[in-house]
Write a protein that binds this DNA or RNA. Structure first.
Lengths: 316, 316
DNA sequence: GCGCATCGTGATCATATGATCGACGGAAAC
DNA sequence: GTTTCCGTCGATCATATGATCACGATGCGC
């Protein structure tokens, strides 16, 4: 605060000197001592001038990369929603967005997973892609996999096939069944109970975020119908995580559909130390924003335009 | 110099990591050790990544121009010669002056070039250095490159190698040929005509300014002989731009040499909205001064002693 | 297969940098 | 005039940084 009103105006000569010092330092690669000798200044003074130059914004560092702009967004996301971490991948017209998110997510997890740890996985296209990319790492590095919901086995088997299958625990059931009492019965099965309680002990959860849109994977794979989605939307649903639909504040709705799910609920999900979500694309803006606002996730991996849109909505 | 053209291409993931490191270092003010911890890298590796980032031009330090530079001299140059802009870099005995000018020029252009724009480039050591520094920006930011003369391909290819080569248009010919009729024939070639007419549509032209001295790059690279230069000097030549020699008022001379050039003439050059020249050093004082007086250039990037000398000569 | 060169890595150490502290000097208050 | 406050300066020292070295992995040619 004290230096905030520190004279912003200084001698023109001072300005020139400062920029000269900055030039020598940053562009010519001279040391502060060398600059001092050359311009008859004490080394310490040169140091202070550079410091001042930086504080005043006279010296500006530009990161000349398509990633550059993303870091600012990451910082904002973390700040606004209290995320542990955010990853934003650069905008790019070409290429499937889910593939690129999966790539980023798998990279993130690779750097994060330690031996002996357990990763719980949800349901969705992005999650599947991530697991495919992770497959090799998982088998090399004694990492266990467990499913958060039913319906995962379909794609996870190919991924974790072979050697390390003893470390893979799946809920042997579909994601959604047709009747509430059937779901109850399945959830009571001993093996299902075991896997679900194991999932509660996972170190990380990897989930996708679904939009309430006709293109949703839930509809494409026959777990839900368009008319159901229309009803969900009327009730205020903006998105889903592991099959549970929530409103714009990230609060889970009370839907009959939820009673037919086989998998963990939001309470159990939140108990997992770190919930990592990978999702992006224009359709998912509201879904992601609500999840973040509601504290449903700890780590968000998304793309640049989506991040921008989310932040803008919470700006006002 | 030698390692300047070591592989400019690297893994996308590598680049992301590098950008992230740079961001933490320069924007968040973290130390290299802290970054290492955070990203699971050894401190030394972080240090090396930063080094590489700087060398590759991924990290750029910009010194705010409104304060930076050598104010008084810049203002005087603009005033006396009616330049759009002047950049003067501080004096320094050691270090290659061309490298420092190239640094300044690339910085200027980076701040100026917008997407979809086209930059036409001339011939010379400083231009080459500038392009090397710009390479990264150019490929990222949909900017087209076109040559103003022949003989450019030799050094531009390494620069624009790889991805964005569809945006690079070179005159496929040497700068100077041995006979007038050969030059005529080349200039009539369809492809050459095309590139030259494209060059006329460029938004900016980046050129060097050559002195009529034995050290000239034109002589060093075998395009002209000392005896030719001696003759040019007798005829009143004080400098050249894209191979065209002019007198002390910046008026092009009528030399046979010019008829053997493959490239644009002064009329076409002036038609480009902004002609940017980067040149400095004691040998080039008269050449630069004449170019400025004759209105051959719109933007001048030079060094302090040279600027001083030029102004002094026009003071009296 | 066996050197051989090359590269990337981390360890060690010299150097560069910036934080802290006391001293000096000028300006305002008394 | 003195005193006190404030800012600046340089000395000292802890830390951050980058240069050098040595090692192990990888790839190449013999």
């Amino acid at each position: 605060m004290n230096e905030a009103n520190d004279e912003l105006a200084f001698e023109p000569h001072e300005e020139e000197l400062l920029s000269r010092v900055a030039w020598h330092y940053y562009h010519d690669g001279l040391t502060q001592s060398e600059i001092g000798e050359r311009l008859n200044l004490s080394r310490i003074k040169v140091s202070r001038m550079l410091d001042r130059g930086r504080k005043m914004g006279l010296i500006h560092v530009h990161i000349n990369s398509s990633y550059g702009g993303c870091f600012a967004l990451e910082a904002r996301l973390q700040e606004i929603y209290g995320l542990d971490e955010a990853r934003v991948i650069p905008a790019q017209e070409t290429g499937n967005i889910n593939d690129r998110l999966a790539e980023a997510a798998s990279q993130y997890l690779m750097g994060r997973l330690k031996d002996q740890e357990m990763l719980a996985v949800g349901w969705g296209a992005t999650v599947m892609g991530t697991l495919q990319r992770l497959a090799r790492t998982l088998s090399y590095r004694d990492i266990s996999l467990v499913s958060l919901t039913g319906g995962v086995s379909a794609y996870i088997e190919g991924v974790a096939s072979g050697r390390s299958s003893q470390n893979v625990h799946l809920i042997p059931a579909p994601l959604v069944v047709s009747q509430e009492n059937i779901a109850e019965a399945i959830r009571a099965e001993r093996h299902v109970v075991e896997v679900m309680s194991m999932a509660r002990t996972a170190n990380y959860a990897l989930v996708g975020i679904g939009a309430v849109a006709d293109e949703a994977t839930l509809i494409a794979s026959g777990y839900a119908s368009r008319s159901q989605f229309e009803i969900f939307r009327r009730q205020g649903a903006v998105g889903d995580i592991i099959g549970i639909f929530y409103d714009q504040n990230g609060e889970p709705l009370d839907l009959p559909f939820h009673k037919m799910l086989v998998g963990l609920d939001f309470g159990a999900l939140s108990a997992i130390p770190q919930v990592i979500a990978a999702a992006g694309g224009p359709k998912k803006i509201d879904a992601i924003r609500a999840a973040a606002r509601g504290g449903r996730i700890d780590v968000l991996i998304t793309d640049e335009p989506t991040a921008q849109a989310i932040i803008e909505k919470d700006q006002a």
